[in-house]
Amino acid sequence: MAWYFWVIIVVVILMAFFVLGLYNGLIRLRNQMKNAWAQIDVQLKRRHDLIPNLVETTKGYMTHERETFESITNARNLAQSAVGQGVGAQSKAEGELSGVLSKLLMVVENYPDLKANTNFLALQEELSSTENKISLSRQYYNDSVMHFNNKIQMFPSNVIAGMFGFKTGEFFEVESAAERAVPKVSF
């Protein structure tokens, strides 16, 4: 056997390892992205569970916010029905819910009695922390998506991604009509 036969074999083996490494890297990133999405789901579910509790606690105090309560309940039901409808639909529904919820938490200032209620204070800590967790898990998810998409689109991993049909991930956007309107607060 000629020497170049061995050279070819070695090159082929090295290339196989290289391709394997790239492929595994893509799989790892995709799993990380999926796992990050699961984390968002956990927190969204937690928020859905907290809302009836919040409405129950605050209803007695905030007698002038009937409309807000209604929109919160509606937004929650909408968001709950959007579970499993894909990233786009779910992020839109959850965005609406975030908007109306923050509206409620902002008018709390007008109800001093409520701020003295320990039950409410504990609930408020849970709710605002859940909001934080939602946006932090979204942050991590979006970072993972960005990283995964970069790998899919950049050379050389894009070749492997094309061969095995990897699709780019979808970002969890926060743009929604309600959220865009939220920051208009006047005291």
Partner: peptide, 30 residues
């Protein structure tokens, strides 16, 4: 990847919404 910073006094949960909306006024944190 570029990572934008959160402004002082803005709750984490609102930072994304404000960045997306480009709003000038910031909501009061809890």
């Amino acid at each position: 990847t570029p990572v934008s910073m959160r402004k002082a006094g803005v709750p984490i949960a609102m930072a994304g919404a404000i960045a997306a909306a480009g709003a000038k006024s910031t909501p009061k944190p809890t």
